[in-house]
Design a protein around this nucleic acid. Sequence first.
DNA 1: TCTGGGGTCCTAGGACCC
DNA 2: TCTGGGGTCCTAGGACCC
Length: 430
Amino acid sequence: MAAVQQPALPRTGFPRTIFHVDMDAFFVSVEELYDPSLKGKAVVVGGQRDERGVVSAASYEARKFGVHSAMPLRTAAKQCPHAIFVNGHPERYRECSEKVYKVLGGFTPQVEMASIDEAYLDMTGTERLHGPPLKAADHLHQRMKAETGLNCSVGIGTSRLIAKVSSAQAKPNGVLWIAPGQEAKFLAPLDVREIPGVGKVMEARLHALGIQRVGDLARLEEGELEARFGKWGLALVGKARGEDAGGWFDSEVGEDIEAKSISHEHTYNEDTADPSQLEATLMRLSEMVGRRLRESNFHAGTIQLKLRYKDFTTITRAHSLPNPTQLDTEIFEQVRGLFRKNWKAGAPVRLLGVHASSFATQAAQIDLLQGSRQERWKNALAAADRLRDKFGESSVSLAAGLRGGFRERIHENPASLPGKSKGRDKGKST
DNA sequence: TCTGGGGTCCTAGGACCC
DNA sequence: TCTGGGGTCCTAGGACCC
């Protein structure tokens, strides 16, 4: 009997079991591992009390005094004068984050670090191995503490959204499981601000409509939300029901996502209008960006300058390159050109940034290596399209995709081929 | 209060092409 | 000669997240 191919179940056809694991006061906890005398005290990580900068993380003790992340350090010092201020140590956090990742990998291969201190796990179908969700989470909790010395909170639900929101409710050091079917009921009493993606601005706009809690969203019609908030409004309706509506939230847990940009920026401790100092900073930032491009083997097609003046007005100016680059000198040349064209000479500068994006795909990189072939290919493909326009879809065919190399053929007119591809017919050629 | 640094995604307008 | 409409790329700015 022939095997019957089962149609893939739609994603919504059965409930997934998603864990969101969020480390508690991560930076502070890591600092405590290095200096146990900090335990139980008001600790602020991010810099010294008189520095220009913001709080990266605050201990629960410091939070009692209103200190929270993103608050200016100087404000934190006023609110909580007895707090201990600690500089951040990114290497330590990265190292601990790797340990966290290893622990999580012991539970499922489908682990996705969403940032340095939080991860999503797809635990669907692991019950035979790990038991029911709450038991698995309890086990995870213990293993995490034993192997990293750190506490975490775990949210469990049928979507990333529910897992994320429930881990926040579980803090600190707790576990919260939202049973399938209970999503909307769980969300309804929460402030709209608890929904990931609703920030200060969206919150204010929703409040202006009389919407304070997630449950209030149900009172508005979908059409009205879409009219007011566009694409976002529609997604919001889904979110209020606990669905992973739209964008990144919809992706499978553990899918590899490539970086889309690399940037570095610097805020001066004191504003400066000295051109040589400013350009020296741009050089340094360009080198940092270039190094990371080469590490990741990316070539950037667009280079962007960021410039913030004393009064905090900020401009960005971008330029796209004909040939994507990963070289410090080329990055610097571009960004210096943008700087010279756009800086109001003499105006004190607070921040400079260098940003690289539009990374070349592998195919485009091959094009690049082969110099003018790129141009001829583009012309050939454009010619094929024009033929199609004139004579119909079947008049021209491209024999193979880019994957196998440059094997395309324009059947009707082989002479127009831009060069020949030799060998390497089968298999990947990258 | 006086506002870091690293990212992602979205919107909107203009250029350009078909 | 005038007109329109869609698609894509580029640029600038801003909301949001950790």
